[in-house]
Design a protein around this nucleic acid. Sequence first.
RNA 1: GCCGAAGUGGCGGAACUGGCAGACGCGCCGGACUCAAAAUCCGGUGGGGCUCACCCCCCGUGUGGGUUCGAUUCCCACCUUCGGCACCA
Length: 833
Amino acid sequence: MDRYDPAEIEAKWQQVWKEEQSFVVVNPADAAAADRSRKSYVLEMLPYPSGTLHMGHVKNYTMGDVIARFRARNGFTVFHPMGYDAFGLPAENAAIKTGLRPAELTRINTDNINQQLHRLGVSIDWSRELATCDPGYYKWTQYFFLRLFERGLAYRKEASVNWCPSCATVLANEQVVQGSCERCGSTVEPRSLAQWFFRITEYAEQLLKDFELLESWPERVITMQRNWIGRSEGAEVIFRVADLEIDIPVFTTRPDTLFGATFFLLAPEHELVGTLVDGTEYENPVRDYVTSARLKPLVDRAVADRDKTGEFTGRYAINPVNGESIPIYVSDYVLMEYGTGAIMAVPAHDQRDFEFARKFGIDVRVVVSGEGAGAGDGPALDAAFEEEGLMVNSGRFDGMPNREAGSAITEWLSVEHLGRAAVSYRLRDWLVSRQRYWGAPIPVVYCEKCGVVPVPKSELPVLLPEVEDYAPRGKSPIATNEEFVNTTCPACGGAARRETDTMDTFVDSSWYFLRYTDPHNDEAAFDRDAAGYWMPVDQYIGGVEHAILHLMYARFFTKVLHDLGMIDFREPFKNLFTQGMIYYQGAKMSKSKGNVVNPDEHVERYGADTLRLYILFVGPPELDVEWQDQGIEGSFRFLGRVWRLVNEIVEKTGAAPAAADFRGAGDGAAALLRKTHQTIAKVSADIGERFRFNTAISAVMELVNETYLAKDSLLADEQGAAVMRFVAGSVVKLLDPFSPHICAELWQRLGHERLWQEPWPQADAAYLEEETYELVVQVNGKVRDRLRMPASAGREELLAAARASGRAARYTAGKQVVKEVIVPGRLVNLVVR
RNA sequence: GCCGAAGUGGCGGAACUGGCAGACGCGCCGGACUCAAAAUCCGGUGGGGCUCACCCCCCGUGUGGGUUCGAUUCCCACCUUCGGCACCA
């Protein structure tokens, strides 16, 4: 018997798969009419090509491959493409360091990853490979930008935005974590800049509602998105500024507390602040306050337990429900980006307002009174009362439950044209401009005469020009390329300047799954029927770190494309699986912590089959797991064990077929057959239904262990040998999705061809049933005996056997049996007193 | 502070619908093979007690309570760890 040599076997089969194009699928000739019931689109999040793949990728792509191979063997036409999220800052930063052009560097990295994926033996349709930095791809990213622009969904606006000083670019809200840049960790600064946004807020309601179209998504991902979108129901109420003919609307979720409003607040950025104070004695202090608030880092401003600050404007607002004049202040705890940037403040029922009122000596008026609440009056309160209760001090609404009163007040406001029911979202529009080089140029020009003019479709792509220096200077490096910048206006033919910002790379990855369906199309981003045939993605797999970012942007894009009439579905990913992270030495594997385990070294040392097997065996795929250096050794040993077992069977039984019917086989053979069918059933369910690859693998290990023990006696006779061949074939088939190379090889040695085209084994119910089982006999819930019983035994028989048990009798002697619990197939519990 | 996930041997982890806790793997211990070692094959391995000959008994799934004949599993309270959100009116 030759030794198990993974390097040789893996190269051999990878070559076969490449030559035969084993995993290439073609679009149906008439995609619109084709039967879609047996197609399955299995997709893993595309990698960002930063050098090489890490263990997280290996886990991601192995999981996807197990599902892809499993479905293919179960009769599905599996669509399993791959590409590269190739634009982005790291390539550019590395280019600045190494002097290589980002395009070159990216090419090197994608080639490298392509090779790594081949070496892992992932069953990918390589004919559809794409990179988002190819002009043939980003042409369509730019095209979508223009379609959004046409619809008013892409717009340019001057706003206070998040600026990362270290990346020297602006960031979307989603890319700011706790006031810091998601990528580099620097503290983000506010800056007022004119930037391009996508109007994702327009889709806030759809993004929430369409969760119901999803088949299976992790609940926590849905929750995270729901929280991020942050829908609040309430009312918009109009307050008039006394002495000035100005109306200021506010948004509140508590219209029931309107009678308790004792002051009014504007965000420092509110456009009316100047109007209120200009020319008054309050102008200077208020302007000073606004200036300092604007300079404050966003992190500092977002801290909840910070002392409340503010400035009185000298103006008063009139409360529409009771005509009272309440003072207007400016305070930085009011955010311009949320609601209307102005609020009515009800200190008795909002903790933040309460703190402000106490500091500034403003009245606190209770209008909702409930149990445990300071039913007492304002001065007695030591905290805001935010619970439910009955209305007081609220005119004709007194005595009503506050929830009811909220609706009644909103209704009344609406009749009087002083307000209306309203919904507000926490979600902000998606800021897509970036002042960096390595991205898709935003396809617009600025003309002195015509203003903002979109580049016509026929002139796409707007090619990313070469530049001398990629270093970020607060402006896109492209801005230095005069040849690029200076152009003519597509509308009037006059002189114009190109936009020099590039798009956020999350735009690129918001539609790549559609491009795979028709990757070489020059006429369109994709063919409608091809996309309609393959989409939506049946199983999407990736890291939970994209719960909000990529997954929400891709959902948004899909909805826009639906509304543009380009596709018929509104959700891109029907089922989502989020994998856990890999820990090592107690911490997340990361370059900065220096605790990375390099997959290449392990492929070299043990082979891809072992690495794939181990990474899924180490624990449940959705949980974070700990990488153990010695653990992988065990997986390698196991594959060696399988190798020797199957080879020995081949050597000793020759090419004799595995007999189909083993009825009448000896006891040992029958037991092993039963185990085999049980294993087939378990592995099928674990992969197909539960995604529990670790237990599927351990089930195969059990079968292999039992086979080793039965081996010598079974190989002694002909029928036993036939059983052994059947078992060997089953082991190889069951293990194939995890470790496809060794299985392909062993399958060939068993006298067959192309394991990856074999149908998945089916468990025969006739073998699953055990004839006897071990009945547990309990006394008062404690196990006292185990009896072998026929599977057919009835309740009476089980009870009689339990009562006859001598061991159990020791605990029932002299006592009275007050209850008998009989669970056929499991146990009998005698309850004694 | 709010929301979510998790807590089981020396370690990674099993236990599907409330029914034998610790599958499988790692590590460790012992045996076989070998001049020897590696590799391989076989066996043992939660803790404690015992007339420790493997009979047998007790304890044991983060902590404390509860429901139940029976709880790793369900309920309540708490502790710890990780993730998300956090002045969003």
